[in-house]
Design a protein around this nucleic acid. Structure first.
Length: 554
RNA sequence: GCCCCCGUAGCUCAGGGGAUAGAGCACAGGAUUCCUAAUCCUGGUGCCGCAGGUUCGAAUCCUGCCGGGGGCACCA
């Protein structure tokens, strides 16, 4: 509907210019069509007159008046008025809203889409947890946000790929291998001094035990240096297949699994460094190789190759981003834990230094999750082996509740995840509220089928019967869905979908309680069933954007 | 010390230039002959952290301050 208003407004403007009611000019930028908060201000309003006013030095209300007669001639509107400082308020006629329901129904699956993305290619990279341990709750939030964002962008007309970047090279991998190796020796009764920087979790012991099962005492006589790679590989394989399993259970899909190792093997890292070298952004100091990120807004320069000769992770990250840029995306979305925020300027610096537009790189920082159980906050630390894993949470509260809760807040705000609340199968748990709306609608159609009622074609249905304030409001809310979808996608804000759905569910439940859907009047029944069919679809599509199931019954 | 995020109702948070700032929870009371009560209805709250600035218009943008969290390695 908003788009229709926009084009009507555009035409009215051009006509006013042609008639000499407005001086000759282009349609200005910054014109908004908004849904006013107060009902008395109409269904939509625009600030066009206020924008024009400052341009042509005429009071805004006077500018608005010159558009008024043209707009009023349009049958779309019941009323158009000038209000406040110079808003043009549009009141859509009841009949237009009622007819609109048929359009929505007929447009089928296309309704829950938008072309806001215009076919632009986007890569969403998220989770990317190092394979040194199971995914924990924080990763879960990133996974929910990233996966949902990808679905949202897709629905909004972007071409989306999702990617998991695997840090399978470097110090952490060595530490991981060492951790397993030492536990392996312990397995055979050796007394081992287990260093603090090694991974303490029980899963390390499990992997070591498994190595002992499979290989027996074979590695005990092999020098540590020689057998560590085998232990690292074994650990990565086990942990990574666990990660994949967790993600699968969590309903999260990745198109690509991108290994850091391939960046080294393919010479991409070397290529990135040579490029920076050519452009004169590298220098040696204290035996290390530095990148002048401070020339691009970073607070200080960063090391790329340590004096030991080893490359830092940053070196690989530069290559990774260069590689992503070269793959030709219009936008790169990186979703990181908020504790990595200091990393943003240096990666942006790298992108810029390599000659790409750093505004195409959007880094979303997902704030930490506070896990709360019985009113107490739970401690989290991977290295110390004290953390609540994602799979534990999923097992305890279910995928639907977990995902929904992760997506009820904007990602840059801290999230208190109350396990007891998420577990509770009742009132306070918002996910059921929305799912229940869908299940109720499903049950209405089951009931209708039982009574042999078949939904007619929309043009055989009298939607004018949907005339209560409640019904009109629902017609409007449903109509706004594609708009909400587009705005959430462009703002990279999937939580707005859950907010919208909760809102719609509230309105629906009230309506349901007060209204008989399948009643004595077959015409009214048909009209309400048509409304129900569309609402059901909105809930289903909306929940799907969040990666939450839409049950037929509960 | 420097950097990032947050500060909105008793609590958890939406809203992120537009007109009278919202929801859930909590608290109290009520609703079921009939499509699912995981539901609904009725009750009231706010110096939008503080102070300046930009604007026709600021909870929203800018600056400073205060408070909370996080980050500031040749770790990731």
């Amino acid at each position: 509907m908003k788009n229709r208003i926009k084009s009507v407004l555009f035409e009215a403007f051009n006509q006013a210019v042609k008639n000499g009611k407005l001086p000759g000019m282009e349609f200005p930028d910054g014109v908004q069509i908004a849904v006013p908060k107060a009902e008395a201000h109409g269904d939509f309003s625009t600030n066009l007159a206020m924008i024009l006013a400052s341009r042509i030095k005429t009071p805004p209300r006077q500018v608005a008046d010159s558009l008024l007669s043209i707009l009023r001639a349009n049958p779309l509107f019941e009323k158009v008025e000038v209000a406040g400082p110079g808003f043009l308020n549009f009141f859509i006629s009841t009949e237009t809203w009622q007819q609109n329901l048929k359009h929505i129904f007929n447009s089928g699956d296309k309704f829950a889409t938008s072309d806001a993305g215009n076919g632009r290619r986007v890569l969403v990279e998220f989770v990317s947890a190092n394979p040194t341990g199971p995914l924990h709750v924080g990763h879960g939030r990133g996974a929910a946000v990233g996966d949902s964002l990808a679905r949202l962008l897709r629905a909004a007309g972007f071409k989306v790929e999702t990617e998991y970047y695997i840090n399978d090279v470097g110090n952490q991998m060595k530490t991981l291998g060492l951790s397993v190796y030492l536990r392996y020796r312990e397995h055979f009764g050796e007394k081992v001094d287990f260093p603090r920087e090694c991974y303490q979790g029980d899963y390390i012991r499990d992997i070591a035990d498994d190595m002992a099962q499979r290989h027996g005492r074979r590695y005990l006589d092999v020098p540590e240096d020689e057998c560590l790679p085998d232990f690292t590989k074994a650990a990565v394989d086990v942990i990574f297949s666990g990660i994949k399993k967790d993600l699968l259970e969590f309903g999260v899909h990745f198109d690509n699994w991108f290994s850091e190792r391939t960046l080294h093997d393919s010479g991409m890292v070397q290529k990135a460094l040579s490029l920076l070298e050519e452009k004169g952004f590298l220098y040696e100091k204290d035996g290390a190789l530095w990148f002048k990120t401070s020339e691009f807004g970073d607070e200080k320069d960063r090391v790329i190759r340590r004096s030991t000769g080893e490359l830092t992770y940053f070196a690989a990250d530069i290559a990774y981003h260069l590689q992503k840029m070269e793959r030709g995306y219009d936008m790169l979305v990186d979703i990181w834990g908020a504790d990595h925020h200091g990393y943003v300027p240096r990666v942006k610096a790298a992108v810029k230094a390599l000659g790409h537009d750093d505004s195409a790189l959007k880094v979303m920082l997902v704030q930490l999750v506070n896990l709360i159980e019985e009113g107490e906050q739970k401690a989290m630390s991977t290295r110390a082996g004290e953390f609540v894993t994602l799979s534990e949470v999923v097992e305890s509260v279910g995928t639907d509740a977990a995902r929904f809760i992760f997506l009820t807040r904007r990602c840059d705000s801290h999230l208190d995840f109350d396990l007891d609340l998420a577990r509770s199968q009742s009132q306070e748990n918002p996910v059921y509220y929305v799912q229940y709306a869908h299940a109720r609608l499903a049950s209405v159609f089951r009931k209708a089928a039982e009574q042999g009622i078949v939904l007619r074609e929309p043009d055989q249905i009298d939607t004018a019967l949907l005339s209560s304030a409640e019904e009109l409001n629902l017609l409007k809310m449903i109509d706004a869905f594609p708009q909400v979808l587009a705005e959430s996608a462009l703002a990279l804000a999937p939580h707005r979908i859950s907010y919208y759905l909760t809102n719609l569910a509230g309105k629906f439940h009230g309506y349901y309680t007060r209204s008989r859907f399948i009643g004595e009047d077959p015409e009214l029944t048909q009209a309400r069933l048509l409304l129900s069919a569309v609402m059901k679809r909105v809930f289903k599509k909306g929940l799907n954007l969040l990666g939450v199931s839409a049950p037929e019954s509960m």
